[in-house]
C-alpha cells in the first residue's frame, strides 16, 4: 500500500519536472520560463522526496529527505528573483499577447 503511494508520488514528481522542461522550451520569454522552472521543478522535487520518505526505514531518515525540500524552495525563490531583477535591469521586455 505504502509502496503504491510511493510509486504514485515518484511518478507525479517526474511529471512535474517534465512539465517544467516543457515550459522552459515553450514559453516565449525569460520571465515566463522562470515561472515554469522554479515552480514546477520544485513541486517535482517535493513529490520525489515525499515519495522516497514513505519508503524510509526510520523517522530520522524520512525527515532528512524532507529537510531537502524547504532548502530547495528557498534556493529557487532567491535565485529566480535575482534572475528576474537582472533581466529587468538588462531592459528585457516581457512578451505580451499582442506582440505576435
Amino acid at each position: 500500500m505504502i509502496e503504491i503511494a510511493s510509486i504514485v508520488l515518484l511518478c507525479m514528481g517526474a511529471f512535474f519536472y517534465f512539465s517544467g522542461t516543457v515550459g522552459l522550451l515553450r514559453f516565449p520569454d525569460v520571465y515566463s520560463r522562470l515561472h515554469a522552472l522554479a515552480k514546477a521543478d520544485n513541486l517535482g522535487l517535493g513529490c520525489i522526496v515525499l515519495g522516497l520518505a514513505l519508503q524510509a526505514e526510520s523517522l530520522a531518515v524520512a525527515l532528512k529527505l524532507l529537510l531537502i525540500w524547504p532548502l530547495a524552495l528557498a534556493a529557487s525563490a532567491g535565485i529566480s528573483y535575482a534572475i528576474a531583477r537582472r533581466a529587468d535591469a538588462l531592459g528585457i521586455r516581457p512578451w505580451r499577447r499582442e506582440d505576435t
Binding site: F16, R26, F27, A36, K39, A40, N42, L43
Partner: peptide
C-alpha cells in the same frame, strides 16, 4: 508558503502543457 507553492507548481505545469496560447503575461 508551502501550500501555495504546491498550487503554483500544479498550475504552471498545466499551463506549460497547454502551451503558449494559455498565457496572458503582464
Amino acid at each position: 508558503f508551502i501550500w501555495n507553492s504546491v498550487r503554483g507548481g500544479a498550475q504552471v505545469a498545466l499551463i506549460a502543457l497547454r502551451g503558449r496560447q494559455a498565457l496572458q503575461p503582464d
